[in-house]
Amino acid sequence: MGFSDLPLLDQIKGRMSWLDERQRVIAQNVANSDTPGYVGRDLKAPTDFAAALRDGGALQMTRTSANHIAPPVPQNRFHTSAAPDSETTLDGNTVVVEEQMLKMAESRMAYDAAISFYQKSMNMLRMAARGPGR
């Protein structure tokens, strides 16, 4: 079992993957900020354990016996939904670039925090794996 197989690190990687996908959706919103009728989209994080299992999220069921029922394979890990901003222009576009930039900065800060947590966890594991007196 390697470091990358630890559930904690797997969860951090899942969070970083979600944040990366959210940045892509936000960038798509900004790119379409002048498209008539475009409705802004956003990713919603699973809010409870049952939703995370149902949607496939970062939580995965594992078969520990051949007699167990195989878990369903999620079709798409992340789901976008319409998330109009606070204004709608006359042409029907709901993207406000300033609000999208705030969402982008929020995602970037969360991504930086996840990277920092991942690095600190790896450093702690490396320190624990060293022999005594090193």
Rank of each mutant, 00 (worst) to 15 (best):
Y118V: 00
D55Y: 08
A82M: 08
G92K: 07
R134C: 00
A110P: 00
Q119K: 12
I26L: 13
D5V: 08
T94H: 07
S116Y: 12
I115V: 14
D85F: 00
R126G: 04
G133M: 07
N67I: 07
F3Q: 13
G92S: 09
A129K: 06
P71R: 08
S107G: 10
R134Q: 11
P132W: 00
K120Y: 02
G2F: 09
Q28N: 15
T47W: 00
K44A: 11
D112W: 09
T80H: 03
P46M: 07
A52E: 05
A50L: 06
L19S: 03
H68Y: 07
D55N: 15
Y111F: 15
T80W: 10
F117S: 06
G56L: 08
S65W: 06
A83C: 01
Q23T: 09
D112N: 15
A58W: 09
D48E: 06
S17E: 09
S4C: 06
V30L: 13
A50D: 10
E21K: 15
L90F: 12
F3D: 13
S121I: 00
M1N: 12
H68Q: 14
G56T: 11
A45L: 11
M61E: 14
G40T: 06
A31D: 11
L8H: 08
E87K: 15
Q28Y: 09
F78M: 07
V39Y: 04
L102C: 02
R134D: 01
L8T: 14
M124H: 04
D20P: 00
F78H: 10
L90I: 13
V73P: 00
Y118M: 05
D91H: 10
S86F: 03
Y111R: 08
A114D: 03
M61L: 14
S81W: 08
T80G: 07
R134N: 06
S86W: 04
E21W: 10
P36S: 06
T88I: 12
A51W: 00
P74K: 01
M127V: 04
A105K: 06
L102R: 11
A129H: 05
A27L: 09
Y111D: 04
Q28R: 13
G92A: 10
R126N: 08
T62P: 00
M124C: 03
P36G: 08
D10R: 15
P71L: 11
A82Y: 07
W18I: 01
M124K: 04
I69N: 05
T47D: 07
A128T: 05
E21H: 15
W18M: 04
A70Q: 09
N123R: 04
Y118I: 01
P74L: 02
I69V: 14
L125G: 03
N76G: 09
A129R: 08
L102W: 01
Q119H: 05
P36I: 08
L90K: 14
M1F: 12
L53A: 02
F78N: 05
L102S: 06
T64V: 06
S121Q: 03
F3E: 09
P46H: 05
Q75R: 13
R24I: 09
D85T: 00
A82D: 13
A51P: 03
L19G: 02
S65E: 04
L125A: 11
G57E: 12
S121W: 01
A45H: 07
D112V: 12
P46T: 10
D112Y: 09
T62A: 06
